[in-house]
C-alpha cells in the first residue's frame, strides 16, 4: 500500500469471522498532509467490512474535527488500503482451508 503518511492498523486480532473489525488510525508523517496535526493521537473506531465505505468514515473524522477537509481523500485511501488487505487475507485463509 502507498505510504500516505496516515497509518491504519488492526486494533484487535482478526479471527476472520466478524463483519465488524476495530481499526486504529494515526498520523505518521505530518509532511504528507495538508493540515497541521502535531499532537494528534491514535483514533480507534469500528468498521463494518461488508457494509461500510472508507471514504464515509474519513468524512465522519473530518466532521468530528480530527482532520481538515483537504485531507479527507488521503485518510479515506489509507483506510481503504488497510480494509483491502484485511479482506485479501481473509479470502486467502478461506481458500487455503478449502
Amino acid at each position: 500500500a502507498e505510504d500516505t503518511g496516515v497509518r491504519v492498523e488492526l486494533a484487535e486480532e482478526d479471527d476472520g469471522k466478524k463483519d465488524s473489525i476495530a481499526l486504529k488510525l494515526w498520523v505518521e508523517d505530518h509532511k504528507k498532509l495538508k493540515g497541521k496535526y502535531k499532537e494528534s493521537g491514535a483514533i480507534e473506531f469500528t468498521f463494518d467490512l461488508e457494509k461500510e465505505v472508507p471514504e464515509v468514515v474519513a468524512q465522519e473524522m473530518v466532521e468530528s474535527g480530527f482532520f481538515h477537509e483537504s485531507d479527507a481523500k488521503t485518510v479515506g485511501k489509507s483506510i481503504r488500503d488497510r480494509v483491502a488487505l484485511i479482506k485479501w487475507r481473509r479470502e486467502r485463509t478461506v481458500s487455503a482451508a478449502v
Binding site: G41, F45, E63
Partner: peptide, 27 residues
C-alpha cells in the same frame, strides 16, 4: 493512558489515545 471519546452524529464512536509507543520511536 489518557483516552477520549468522540461520538459522531451518525453514531460512530471514535476513541482517541496516544499513538502506540513503538511507532513514536520509529518516527
Amino acid at each position: 493512558s489518557a483516552t477520549a471519546q468522540v461520538v459522531h452524529s451518525a453514531g460512530r464512536r471514535f476513541i482517541v489515545s496516544p499513538v502506540p509507543e513503538a511507532r513514536l520511536k520509529e518516527q
